[in-house]
Amino acid sequence: MAGDLNQALDISATGMDAQNTRLRVIAENIANQETTGSSPGAEPYRRKTITFESTIDRAAGVETVRVKNIGVDSSALPLRYDPANPASDPQGYVKLPNVNTFIEVMDMREAERSYSANLSVMQATRSMLNKTIDLLK
């Protein structure tokens, strides 16, 4: 029924929304990959992670996706010898953010592909709706 197709449009939209938020988190990570602390021994930027969960839209009775949590990656921070940096400890080492550009770029590609997949579902749904309405003409 047309109701199911309309719901498919809404579900794809929540998937696209989730990937939008994921891309925002990736953008934050890449933008802050050189952000060190401002005082000696201070913590630098820590990589942010994102997780998703499925949620039931009770009004429509369908399972959609939403962002569950934006957390912090607690893995070890790399050290760099840079005594001139204001954040360097007494030994002259600076803690750098645990952001790996390659991981972020791969994550970005994945978000892009997932967004495209949801977009394809939307296009297919619209095409099915259009064809059904064309039957009436």
């Binding site: 047309a2 696209m16 939008n20 309405i133």
Partner: peptide, 16 residues
Amino acid sequence: TEVVTALSHAEMTLQA
């Protein structure tokens, strides 16, 4: 995305 879905729904409803 909400704009796109709202416009899609409106378009389909108008066509029907």
